[in-house]
């Protein structure tokens, strides 16, 4: 029995995240009886979606044993660029289409800058993306120095509404999961994990490691851009500081989800769970009605406890 559990820990690094997620769901449902209502569940998905999207992108970079500390800044840049374009072009249907397209393009460009610096120029990933993050954040402030500007109500009503009876935010999450499912079946994904596992060995067996790392950063930029678009839907306005907190939250979500920062082990499913865990922790603290002086302390302790669970699983993994 024990060995089966260890084995499953090896094959499914996100198992611990799933357990923590379920526990938090139960606690949340006890504290908030309406938790399981469809409307409330959808509202939770809407609240956690931007972090989940950034965490998905971050996962690919981390699998190659790199890191993207500019992801939150990319979210901010995309948010202010999209809002500025849509408002600047008069809020028409065409302006929304242009805003969405250019927003994605900006995310990809940011990802390309990171990827080229890290994979081809061989800059150290932590310092590089920390620095590019400052550049991107500065660019966001230059585009929109003060929070503001508005997108037409149709935009946020569509985001908060439903398509074919299913909430838009659920469609976006499902599409992201499907996309990740497709990626996981590609040769690129194999190469990505090989690169993260042992970059020298991967290189010597003919894996184009530089191209693989670049693509991982492109994916991180893409998903950060999608998170930026989700935040436009959520806030209907631009804010140059909006993504700042998402960088470390995304790394936390990835690690909570069982992906190893040393690369190779892990996957997108765990990171989505990780993002939902972080969101649920905030909810639990909210509904437990703790005095606010305690909230930060308890939040940190729960995250540590969730991480500790992951470490226990990893120990089991090593022993097998």
């Amino acid at each position: 029995m024990k060995s089966t559990l260890r084995l499953s820990g090896h094959r499914h690094p996100y198992l611990m995240a799933a357990v923590v997620f379920l526990v938090l769901c139960v606690v949340n449902a006890i504290l908030q009886p309406s938790f399981l209502k469809f409307g409330v569940a959808t509202s939770n998905v809407a609240a956690f979606l931007p972090m989940a999207l950034v965490a998905i992108g971050q996962t690919y970079v981390v699998l190659a044993s790199d890191i993207d500390l500019s992801a939150g800044a990319i979210v901010s840049v995309v948010n202010v660029v999209v809002v500025s374009i849509i408002e600047g072009m008069g809020g028409t249907g065409a302006s929304i289409a242009a805003g969405l397209t250019l927003g994605i393009a900006v995310g990809l460009i940011c990802g390309a800058v990171n990827g080229l610096c890290v994979a081809y120029l061989r800059f150290q990933p932590i310092v590089t993306t920390f620095a590019t993050g400052i550049v991107f954040a500065g660019f966001a402030l230059w585009v929109l120095p003060e929070a503001g500007r508005q997108v037409p109500p149709e935009f946020y009503l569509a985001y908060a509404g439903t398509v074919l009876g299913v909430p838009t935010v659920l469609w976006i999450l499902l599409a992201a999961i499907a996309f990740a499912g497709v990626i996981a079946r590609t040769r690129f994904y194999q190469a990505l994990r090989a690169t993260g596992g042992n970059i020298q060995a991967a290189y010597q067996t003919g894996v184009p490691v530089a191209r693989v790392r670049l693509r991982a950063y492109l994916l991180s930029g893409l998903f950060a851009a999608l998170a930026g678009l989700a935040l436009v839907g959520e806030t209907a306005s631009g804010d140059p500081l909006i993504g700042g907190a998402l960088t470390l939250a995304s790394v936390t979500a990835v690690v909570l989800g069982g992906t190893a920062l040393s690369g190779c082990i892990g996957g997108v499913a765990g990171s989505i769970l990780g993002a939902f865990i972080l969101g649920l922790i905030n909810n639990v603290i909210f509904f437990a009605q703790l005095p606010f002086a305690w909230q930060g302390l308890i939040q940190g302790l729960i995250i540590l406890a969730a991480l500790a669970g992951g470490v226990v699983m990893a120990r089991g993994r090593q022993e097998t």
């Binding site: 908030q32 309406s34 409307g39 409330v40 509202s43 939770n44 809407a46 609240a47 931007p50 972090m51 929070a147 935040l231 959520e234 806030t235 804010d239 500081l241 909006i242 700042g244 907190a245 969101g279 905030n282 909810n283 909210f286 509904f287 606010f292 909230q295 930060g296």
Partner: peptide, 20 residues
């Protein structure tokens, strides 16, 4: 609900109030 949050964090606070 009082915490150092960013804008999405404060939206989440308000969402919880609504759900409650």
């Amino acid at each position: 609900q009082s915490a150092n949050v960013d804008v999405p964090g404060q939206i989440a606070q308000i969402r919880n109030f609504i759900n409650q």
